[in-house]
């Protein structure tokens, strides 16, 4: 076995995470100067990551170990509250005004929308955001909004993100004067809804940062 063969074995241990700590610095330095070992590391790291994926927990409904949904709640509770509390502390009047506005928007949307006249036609999920409310039904989303007026030639555009998708998909555009927007769609795999300001006619992909981003 040549010294380089021995190094390749160390590279394998490095990728697997079993290389003794005393050898890590030497292998790291070697990798930066050796194309053959770098390629080997890259390929073996793929194999090690696949090894990790081989034990990944199952999706809901599949047979096998699954992650309790309560765990997500527990973790998100540690992440979300401080954001809300911080905002409310810094802008108490704005928060109160926003609550009142959201309540009014919610009432208006339910009063307006046909499904509220036919109770029992499907479950509606409600998501409040700073300037409005998003309602999600099985076959559509409805946005009740009070977004800021736009300059001429600009519209708001809705974007939807399916679960597991890498990019948002373009949806309808609407002027700031439209207080309620409906989008017919299958919401079974809907993961998020966003709104951005775009040129009239809309864009194939967002050109500005979102003014609304609601993760379902």
């Amino acid at each position: 076995m040549t010294p380089h063969d021995a190094m390749l074995e160390k590279v394998a241990a490095y990728a697997l995470g079993t290389l003794p700590v005393v050898d890590v610095a030497g292998v790291t330095e070697h990798l930066h100067g050796c194309d053959e070992c770098t390629t080997e590391y890259r390929e073996l790291l793929s194999a090690v990551t696949a090894l990790a994926y081989s034990v990944q927990a199952c999706e809901t409904g599949e047979e096998g170990p699954q992650v309790s949904p309560l765990l997500k709640e527990r973790i998100m509770q540690r992440v979300r509250p401080q954001n809300r509390i911080a905002k409310l502390r810094t802008r108490p009047l704005a928060a109160i005004a926003a609550c009142i506005a959201l309540a009014l928007l919610g009432v208006a949307a339910f009063a307006w929308h046909p499904w509220t006249t036919h109770p029992g036609t499907g479950i509606v999920r409600r998501y409040a955001f700073a300037d409005g409310v998003l309602y999600v039904k099985k076959d559509r989303i409805t946005i009740a909004q009070r977004l800021a007026p736009l300059p001429a030639g600009r519209v708001y555009q809705v974007w939807t993100l399916a679960r597991g998708a890498r990019r948002v998909s373009p949806s309808v555009t609407f002027p700031a004067t439209s207080s309620t927007v409906n989008v017919a769609m299958d919401t079974a795999t809907l993961a998020a809804v966003a709104i951005s300001v775009e040129p009239a006619g809309g864009s194939p992909q967002p050109t500005t940062k979102p003014v609304v981003f609601v993760r379902l």
């Binding site: 994926y53 034990v55 999706e59 170990p65 997500k72 998100m76 954001n83 993961a191 609601v214 993760r215």
Partner: peptide, 17 residues
């Protein structure tokens, strides 16, 4: 927090497994 939640949704099964 929404970005964090998205990352959790994508990777929690891997980490837990």
């Amino acid at each position: 927090a929404a970005a964090f939640e998205a990352l959790y949704d994508q990777y929690h099964r891997l980490v837990y497994g």
